[in-house]
């Protein structure tokens, strides 16, 4: 009883911690233009209106008192960015998993020569700060014609996701019970043991890895800003940053940030079930 109450308090605190900043922006998106001019902004919107959610997709909205809130000039870029971001993130997620799953497994389970050298190479590519590779990447992309293309963005995203996700999964694979050794005794080949036994067993870790790869790609801003901004291959974060410079509309800005959370939240919702429902009793027994 006491223990349950403690858990309940913990859950409430965790939710408050996670949601207050997001609430702050949801609320900002729902404030009327009049309320935005007040000081300080009210904690709760008195007359929540969804005008800015229409505005950012290019529609005018008429408030209940008859005021017309005009569509945002950024709408085209937002729609375009939404589409491009979804395409890029899905491709990056798939490619990352294909590359990383076997890699991380090999590093976690096998002992082989050059292992530490290769691990260091992964670490080096993780450690490279984007600020120092931005200009070189830009120069390279101009030279080989990848700047302003989605392909170019996918490649840059992969250089971030592949080493990171590999690094994360190595620790995870180490923890799995070594059933594939038993399988190998039973005559499974290495690849078969990996595909048929390890992957299903590692479902929860892989699900988390997929979400993480998706989110790295979805939220990448620095490279996108330099490599594809201003071209037709615009992603959502760069599209939103236009609000800061061209159109200082806090409600529209907030609405578009809220919109960017929705697709990854859906991805997270569908993949988290693999984490939650997994009940490993004891596969070795």
């Amino acid at each position: 009883m006491n223990r349950n109450r403690f858990l309940f308090v913990a859950v409430v605190l965790a939710l408050l911690w996670s949601l207050v900043p997001i609430y702050w922006f949801c609320r900002m998106a729902l404030l009327t233009p009049l309320e935005i001019q007040q000081y300080p902004w009210p904690l709760f919107p008195r007359a929540p209106n969804v005008a800015s959610f229409w505005n950012i997709f290019g529609y005018d909205y008429i408030l209940s008192d008859g005021t017309r809130v005009p569509a945002s000039g950024q709408a085209n870029q937002i729609i375009r960015g939404l589409f491009d971001s979804i395409v890029v993130s899905c491709i990056v997620t798939l490619l990352t998993l294909l590359a990383v799953l076997p890699l991380a497994y090999v590093f976690a389970r096998l002992e082989f020569r050059f292992k530490s050298v290769l691990l260091f190479a992964i670490l080096l590519s993780v450690a490279l700060p984007p600020v120092s590779t931005l200009i070189p990447f830009y120069a390279m992309y101009i030279r080989i014609g990848l700047s302003g293309t989605l392909t170019g963005l996918v490649i840059v995203d992969l250089t971030i996701t592949v080493p990171f996700v590999a690094w994360m999964l190595i620790g995870y694979f180490r923890n799995l019970p070594p059933i594939e050794r038993l399988a190998r005794v039973d005559g499974y080949g290495r690849l078969a043991a990996f595909v048929q036994l390890v992957i299903p067993l590692a479902k929860s870790g892989i699900a988390v890895a997929a979400v993480i790869a998706f989110l790295f790609a979805w939220n990448e801003y620095t490279y996108a800003l330099v490599l594809v901004n201003g071209s037709t291959a615009n992603t959502l974060p760069t599209a939103i940053s236009g609000f800061l410079f061209q159109d200082p509309q806090p409600a529209n800005l907030a609405a578009s940030v809220v919109v960017t959370i929705i697709p990854p939240a859906l991805v997270a919702y569908f993949l988290q079930r693999h984490v939650g429902e997994m009940n490993l009793v004891d596969p070795v027994r």
Binding site: P21, I22, N219, P250, L253
Partner: peptide, 23 residues
């Protein structure tokens, strides 16, 4: 609950920067 707790990671660092600046 799991999804809601995961939400902050769904916010881009860019968006989170804006949120915390306003907060």
């Amino acid at each position: 609950v799991r999804t809601l707790v995961f939400l902050p990671w769904c916010v881009s660092l860019y968006g989170a920067g804006l949120m915390f600046a306003y907060l």
